[in-house]
Design a protein around this nucleic acid. Sequence first.
DNA 1: GACATTAGTAGCAGCGCGCTACTTATTCGC
DNA 2: GCGAATAAGTAGCGCGCTGCTACTAATGTC
Lengths: 232, 232
Amino acid sequence: MRERVSRAPTRVVPRRALFTVDLVLLAPRGKHLMLLLARAATNGTKERWLLPCDGPKKSESVEAVARRLVRDVVDRDVSWFEQAGAFGDAKRHAVTADVSICFVGVVPAQTQARPGFTWHPIADAALLPPRQLGMLETALVGVRNRMDYAPVAFRLLPEEFTLSELQQTYEMLLGRRLHKASFRRALQAAWLVEPTDEWRSEGRGRPAQLFRYAPRRRRGNRRGVRFDLLSG
Amino acid sequence: MRERVSRAPTRVVPRRALFTVDLVLLAPRGKHLMLLLARAATNGTKERWLLPCDGPKKSESVEAVARRLVRDVVDRDVSWFEQAGAFGDAKRHAVTADVSICFVGVVPAQTQARPGFTWHPIADAALLPPRQLGMLETALVGVRNRMDYAPVAFRLLPEEFTLSELQQTYEMLLGRRLHKASFRRALQAAWLVEPTDEWRSEGRGRPAQLFRYAPRRRRGNRRGVRFDLLSG
DNA sequence: GACATTAGTAGCAGCGCGCTACTTATTCGC
DNA sequence: GCGAATAAGTAGCGCGCTGCTACTAATGTC
């Protein structure tokens, strides 16, 4: 074990470094999720797309940068968002930032992108620069893991919604199908929604009852351990 | 809705800002968790304690800074660690960094702190500066949530261990008691450990069989939705 | 040998969850 | 009209996970 000189943290002098806040903004389109990308200047024939990003203005908090970014790229407030992590590995960033802090957010289906930004299928993002590609993957995993604990889907829907709409929103965000009866049973058990007196007929088929988000406090059990770990 | 000028991200010029990597390093002591703090220079009568932190050296990745920090504060490698998030709110940081990226890690019980750093009960950390206090809370929640998916406890233990030791490690990290029979049943079902032929007698009581960590691949089910969300 | 102490197990009861199969209510085609 | 198609919503079975009580097993202490 080699010798080391211990440094008192008060003498730590943080180096000035370039940092950006990058945004993974998602919206439903039909049965799939779309991702907002920024058109980069086309130098030559190639057209490049990037995640929207920006640096901080003076004494602006990280979350403030993210909120400003959202306002810059779409015409409405973000329904839900949270930080997905900081990325400062060797992978080159689009604007050569030393560290990029990624936020992931969702906006409703009809949300208009501002000029210079367009919605793309997630698969189209494979051409992003390496660091942004890593961010996107982490962001998607992050939002799917948060679905059980944060009302992401409810924020995405209007005040009143049908249970089928709710389930479709969950399926889109989770990227997998859910079973109808099980979904509703779990939803009832969680005391998250209350029915309204209204019903909506959507073309053919039986009309659906409208619900609203009205969570009631519940006991937080969670005693044991799950042991869901994957690899060593 | 006010007018906005859309900016192409290629024209984004990230501002140079001060940033640090801060470390929440945990170790078992008896039946409780200890936290490594750095003694700050005592100006006057007050003694202050801080989380270890440092800025990046040139072209050093965020994770590299964290690894270097660990080597600077204890005499062995970290058993497990991961990023806990970036903190860039208005709360004042100890060394006035604009953004602080928090890592949380664990080291075994006997780990020696280097000069200038000492182990403290978690409760003693209440006097940390505001941003570091927030980091600590997030870090603790983070490690507890990762327990189900990452072999944190197994990395903390020696090659061979008893199931009681394993359970105590889980209880310490989770901060709550677990039921013995349920813990072992779930552990068996997860195919995570295999018994050795050795038994260890620890003073009074029946000797305990030794196990080693030997995870086998399992099917990843996880179909439904949990609806564990807390508030609106 | 009685007792304390720790390791480890058996089995019950309840609930969460996936699934199949059903009923109900509406539109469409004829 | 009337049945087929379509979608909403429900009933209930079976199984596996989980919390719990209660037990057995093996050691040290007196």
